[in-house]
Design a protein around this nucleic acid. Structure first.
Lengths: 356, 356
DNA sequence: ATGAAAGCGCTAACAT
DNA sequence: ATGTTAGCGCTTTCAT
């Protein structure tokens, strides 16, 4: 390739800026039709006469044509990808949501672009700006709290006709975008009320050690409010370690029998599992001496001791609902509408096992 | 907008096919320069005179310009996104790898396109085909076994200059693409040898219930081979349930004391944790009556009982290494090269705790 | 049912 | 250092 001139005949049709891939034009030439006809066959097969279709199909197969989506998107102004912003992929909660989203979107040919924001609003804004440059078909962000810049970007996207969804939260009073999730403040209240109903009146909410996890904090606030309203003794403690199970253990370890509350609710099941294991190690009787209530219903919750009482959260379903919402906003066909006899409630469900 | 003619003056420069977004041309017009100058400023700022730069910067800010990446990619033939194919996002193993990959790629401005293949080769091929349509800057697939179609696609991509990486596996003898991971057969042997070294001579490998998880199967085969070579009694049992912890429990439950092996190795820690909990419930003494060896070193492994013996797998690091490999292949600057004093070994490490 | 022409918004290549 | 020209590969629009 040292002398480009000598390669003039090996350069594929399309000129020197071509990237060597099979294009519509080549397929069309081979089939003896115009590029438009090939394009049509690809997107609306019924508008091409069977005979023509056959020839094109053959050319398609012979060349191994693969459409260039950048070109398609540029020309049509649409792109078949959905931008998803989540705090962390590694967090199993979001991982399952993404799985649900992907499973729903895939059959419609929508690709997923993923950006973890690391729980940082700044990073989220940067990611959002970057992803919006791809003119995504839809945007899914996590939670309802964002930087002013992010909100402006989301507004603009929506005004340009792009569905924008806030997932994993719900606050209809102030909602500006479609929200698919539940109200964390209320869930915190539910957690407190359950413990109160069980007769515990000295409570702790062990909050996540991730400072920017405002959804956990909101559950804590709801918990605090409901407990106070009922006149119970209550306080919020923040997890001491980043590693949640270790943090859960530490929380129990740090309590002498005398200053131990009657019940502890947790920002998530990982914390609760740590606490449960520590309580077991310390031979604290559950729930007689100490009640534990988790959040999430992770697989391990049902396996430990007599089972951890917790809130089952529809992680995957939230993703599926986001997917459905997008497909419907985009007027795309839903996969298997029968899977959804009635709109499923996305609220967490109390799962009472042996620790409350 | 009913009468397009009357809106002729409100249509932004660019004609009726424009999508209403700010374009380079508008910014250029506003700054009184050619579009190329703006484009240059955006990608190689030092090649623009400071005075000019200032004017352009102002126009950029005033218009709130956001580049259209489809157009950029189409023109340049490059796209700043990396296609990643994994069996399942929900699997925490891969979730952490993705996190590592994303963390490494993000600073270089590379976006992630994610597609879960559900452990199916067919689905993988379809996803691969779809993602390749985006002309990704690099492709990362999971494992070294793929459909013939997938392999052909991967070859073509590589020939077109796109780095292709197979992660989570390593088999230098037959490797056709860059592999970042470890050899599962060998790891299975390591697991068997450890148990043999501990003096156990009646072994079981509890394999994953996911039939297409060939990496787990390979560990099983390695295990079998090493154990047989040593003359030990050994067999492979396949997990009965999809839910791994329940499957682990079931495995132990199904064994009466007489037919119980001396040691069990597991395809993953979830299975092992289930077995461990069941053994604890049944008051089986560990490791005296029964030794357990997991795989993965998931967070829960260190928390249960005296701690599960297992293999620590560098999940996140595999992602990071993939990221580095891509950046280097693309001649992009590495973030913080000091983070990597010496190339880290990606091999799983035995973590001996109380169950072997 | 099919085709021709004209872009989509950007960047490579080649001036100047 | 900056501008001009000519596409990238596709789809929209308008003819036929």
């Amino acid at each position: 390739m040292e002398n480009p001139e000598s390669d003039i005949f090996t350069i594929p049709p399309g000129g020197r800026r071509s990237h060597g891939k099979v294009t519509l034009a080549e397929v069309a030439a081979r089939a003896g039709v115009a590029t438009m006809t090939v394009s049509r066959l690809l997107r609306a097969p019924q508008s091409v006469r069977p005979g023509t279709a056959e020839r094109i199909l053959l050319a398609l197969r012979e060349t191994g044509y693969a459409p260039n989506k950048q070109a398609g998107s540029l020309a049509s102004g649409r792109s078949a990808m959905v931008a998803v912003l989540i705090p962390s992929v590694a967090n199993s909660i979001f991982a399952e949501t993404i799985q649900g989203l992907s499973d729903t979107l895939q059959p419609a040919g929508l690709e997923l672009m993923l950006a973890p924001s690391g729980y940082s609003h700044d990073r989220e804004e940067n990611q959002l700006r970057a992803l919006l440059g791809w003119a995504p078909a839809a945007v899914v962000v996590t939670g309802r709290h964002h930087s002013p810049g992010s909100i402006q970007l989301m507004r603009r996207a929506r005004e340009a006709g792009t569905p924008v969804i806030e997932m994993w939260d719900k606050h209809p009073e102030t909602a500006e975008f479609t929200q698919i999730g539940f109200n964390h403040h209320e869930v915190g209240q539910v957690m407190a009320r359950h413990l109160l109903d069980c007769g515990y009146d000295d409570l702790i909410f062990l909050d996540s050690g991730v400072v920017q996890d405002y959804r956990a904090h909101e559950r804590g606030q709801g918990f605090l409010q409901a407990a106070r309203q009922a006149g119970a003794k209550v306080r919020i403690v923040t997890a001491a370690s980043i590693e949640p199970m270790a943090a859960g253990r530490l929380a129990i370890q740090g309590m002498t029998a005398s200053q131990r509350p009657r019940a502890i609710a947790f920002a998530n099941d990982h914390l609760a599992v740590g606490a449960l294991l520590q309580a077991l190690d310390m031979q604290i009787e559950l729930p007689q001496q100490l009640a534990l209530l988790g959040f999430g219903d992770f697989p391990i919750a049902s396996q430990l001791g007599g089972g951890l009482s917790t809130l089952a959260v529809p992680r995957q379903q939230i993703g599926q609902e986001c997917g459905r919402s997008i497909l419907s906003a985009l007027n795309l066909p839903m996969p298997d509408d029968e899977t959804r006899p009635a709109p499923m409630p996305l609220e967490p469900r109390l799962v009472i096992r042996q620790t409350t």
